[in-house]
Design a binder for these strands. Structure first.
Length: 491
RNA sequence: GGCGAGUUCGUCUAGUGGCCUAGGACACUGGCCUCUCACGUCGGUAACACGGGUUCGACUCCCGUACUCGCUACCA
């Protein structure tokens, strides 16, 4: 096994080209969990070596989303660290120096081939159906002195790595076991581009070495490049890290996850009203399990039992229904004071134009309402959306429920309940319930006969929290007013 | 085309040769709880891709086939 005894140092190394995708987020989660579980270090490295695709906003969103998820890095942008810089674009001199070493040791060479020629070579290979494709190594044996002379004369070149012509390169993937590749099938990859920026292959190997990375946990699209990386490590005379290739996350119906098929980025889920702890929990379970039947877990619990050998090599489909359920579970466990704060924010827009001063609503009332609502919602935004009637009288009544609840006899019942409630000196759910019971015995009716008309009259809808608590939250005066307003509609 | 990885209920997964007449969860569904809706709870439907081996015995090991995905860039 390719284990090592170095202290655990892992990294999340995104390329700032777009939003933080949930697949990337999960890679970050596993790295973070592993570091924390092992008492190691988790660092963030920005792989901004592609100048064409660089996106300033993406970097900003990335750090924001990482923090929102709760994945604070120990070293990296904003926090610094001893092994920086943590932006690859600031490490160009390091790459140049390392490439120089490879050039001098004969492990790399200058290649003057134009893109047009490479295109031509590729075309010929495709049409002739050759098994071995890739760069034809035209410049591989150019003497270094000649190459230097051409460079001095102003010619442009890239630097390619000299892959051994034969033999096999093996590596041990921590979750898939041994993997081996025939060197003859690998081509001489570019390590330094014409613009002097390194390619991913060179930069990640150099950085992982100098930043003392012990384990590389990355997406499995890198498996095919790993033998090249291993060859690079050995050309440098360095010990490679432990590789662990993570499976991809697929869209619900299979295929790639994309914004076309719904939410795909961390930001999308935040806007939808998902809790970061629910998203992290769900993503972590997509490809990993704690070894027992637990599913709804806190960050600490997951870290406490996290291990690489429980990561599955199999691609997983993103099931938003389950995420929804999980979000509901986390909301249920969330502190009501926190939920009340969140609710107050949304209430501003929900109660827009109602004349209600949201800031003046007592926190205790919002907490009371959150306690009633937290087991029946799946999204945070439902907190404010489904609590409108606690603050504003209904302007219409659910049509379907109306037929029954406001039907024959409902007016008499409502009047009886109204006078009972009006007589209460303290308006709390215990006393309200007792009041309802008293009316039940008086009129010889079942509780359900009273509850339905009253609920509809006060809330306008047929479903919701326990009626007695609901009435307490609305308040005595307002309840009586709403009953009076609905009375004329009853029979 | 070549190379590589993967393949257990619709979905996420447990399972490392006998404990599997395959367990849990989401979804779906029946009951209970109950003032409604949820929550909770008790049940139900539902899977080892296929074909060969190896073995007393295979979901588990080996080979092949099929399918899916990835790589095959001076992108990561």
């Amino acid at each position: 096994m390719s284990t090592n005894t170095r202290p655990v140092r892992v990294r999340f190394a995104p390329s700032p080209t777009g939003y933080l995708h949930v697949g990337g987020a999960r890679t970050a989660i596993y790295n973070y969990f592993y570091a924390k579980a092992m008492g190691g270090t988790f660092y963030l490295r920005i792989e901004d070596t592609d100048r064409k695709r660089y996106n300033e906003a993406a970097l900003h969103d990335l750090t924001r989303d990482m923090k929102w998820l709760g994945l604070q890095w120990d070293e990296g942008p904003e926090v610094g660290g001893d092994l920086g810089p943590y932006h690859q674009s600031e490490r160009l001199d390091i790459y140049a120096r390392e490439v120089q070493k490879l050039l001098e040791s004969g492990h790399a060479y200058y290649c003057f081939c134009t893109e047009e020629r490479l295109e031509e070579v590729r075309k010929v290979q495709e049409s002739s159906g050759q098994a071995v494709t890739g760069y034809d190594r035209q410049c591989r044996d150019l003497p270094l002195a000649d190459a230097l002379a051409r460079l001095a004369a102003g010619e442009k070149a890239v630097v390619r790595f000299k892959v051994p012509l034969e033999g096999v390169t093996r590596f041990e993937d921590q979750i898939r076991g041994p993997i081996e590749y025939q060197n003859a099938l690998l081509d001489d990859l570019v390590i330094l581009k014409r613009d002097k920026y390194p390619t991913y292959h060179l930069a990640s190997v150099v950085d992982d070495h100098y930043m003392q990375t012990s384990h590389v946990l990355r997406g499995d699209e890198w498996i095919s490049s790993t033998p090249k990386h291993v060859l690079l490590y050995s050309a440098f005379g360095w010990e490679p890290p432990v590789f662990c290739h993570l499976p991809v996350i697929l869209a619900a119906g299979g295929g790639k996850l994309s914004k076309r098929k719904g939410a795909a980025s961390v930001g999308d889920f935040r806007d939808l009203g998902y809790l970061p702890e629910a998203l992290v929990n769900f993503l972590a379970l997509l490809g990993w399990n704690p070894g027992d039947d637990r599913e709804v877990m806190t960050l600490e619990e997951m870290i406490g039992c996290f291990s690489l050998d429980r990561i599955s090599p199999k691609a997983a489909a993103f099931d938003e229904k389950k995420l929804e359920w999980m979000n509901g579970q986390h909301i249920h466990h969330k502190d009501s004071n926190w939920l009340a704060d969140y609710m107050r924010q949304d209430l501003g827009t929900v109660l827009e134009g109602s004349g209600i001063d949201v800031d003046a609503i007592p926190q205790a009332k919002l907490i009371f309402i959150c306690n009633l609502l937290k087991t029946r919602i799946h999204f945070l935004k439902e907190l404010a959306e489904s609590s409108k009637y606690f603050f504003i009288a209904p302007t219409s009544y659910d049509e379907k429920a109306k037929a029954k609840a406001f039907g024959t006899g409902s007016r008499a019942i409502t009047q009886a309940v109204r006078s009972q409630l009006a007589g209460l000196s303290l308006f709390d759910h215990k006393r309200i319930e007792q009041g309802f019971m008293d009316v039940c015995t008086q009129l010889d009716l079942k509780l359900g006969n009273l509850v339905h008309p009253i609920r509809l009259a006060v809330s306008g809808v047929a479903a919701g929290p326990g009626l007695f608590e609901l009435l307490e939250a609305v308040g005595q005066g307002e309840v009586l007013r709403r009953l009076d307003a609905a009375l004329p509609l009853m029979e």
